[in-house]
Design a protein around this nucleic acid. Structure first.
Lengths: 110, 110
DNA sequence: GCATTATGCAACCACAAGGTTGCATGTCAA
DNA sequence: TTGACATGCAACCTTGTGGTTGCATAATGC
């Protein structure tokens, strides 16, 4: 799995919205995903292609329709492999930051 | 905290590298963070500004130096508020996806 | 067959993003 | 004070990104 592709795919609010929709209801067609969005069908197609390239969305052909499914595995992998690294020593880092910020010439209370 | 700013900040590999460096050692100056990077000082400055705007990096003035500290809170918030949503029903979604993909006209074993 | 429907492909456009260079500002130390 | 050092600011350039429109292709139903 390509970490950069996943982060890049998650960086856009429209794509996160699409993931939300697929999270609520899987197996939606392109047309269904377009409904209610202030965006052309082709724009949605591009977003889905990016999500697909990042392996965040799996597709399935059903005749002339293309059904989309959310694939939570890369998100899980990101959380496990990358975010956890910053979470684990969170309290230590916070304490350290606090110590640093308060221990120095910290006069203005803001 | 601005979810979009955090995701956007995390989308760039150079910025994730900077976070990694600050994770390894906090309180580094701009000059220290530039060492070994194939990028001008000004490029790093811009990246740090984006990380700062997303509240992922906290800074502290020390005379003519500017010390940078990692702030893991927004990353933690993202993991809690956004990623957990996709992780929780992960097994369900995976099972559902598997069922869908295998239950239909799925002939090629690949 | 043939019109309709669902999606794919390609060209195009505006703008933001990452990067650079050049110079200004501010701080330290002798 | 003055030179050196650390950072800030601004203009500029190139590429990538999100978006559009127009047309092509493929499946469905009558």
């Amino acid at each position: 799995m390509n970490e950069d592709a996943v982060f890049h795919a998650l960086a856009d609010a429209s794509r996160r919205e699409l993931l939300d929709r697929l999270h609520r209801r899987g197996g939606q067609t392109l047309g269904a995903l377009c409904e209610g969005l202030a965006m052309s069908r082709q724009a949605v197609t591009k977003h889905l292609a990016i999500l697909e390239a990042a392996n965040l969305v799996a597709t399935e052909r059903r005749g002339r329709e293309k059904l989309h499914h959310l694939n939570p595995v890369p998100i899980h992998a990101i959380a496990e492999r990358w975010i956890a690294k910053f979470q684990r020593p969170q309290l230590d880092a916070l304490a350290d930051l606090k110590r640093t910020l308060e221990g120095e010439e910290h006069d203005r209370p803001e």
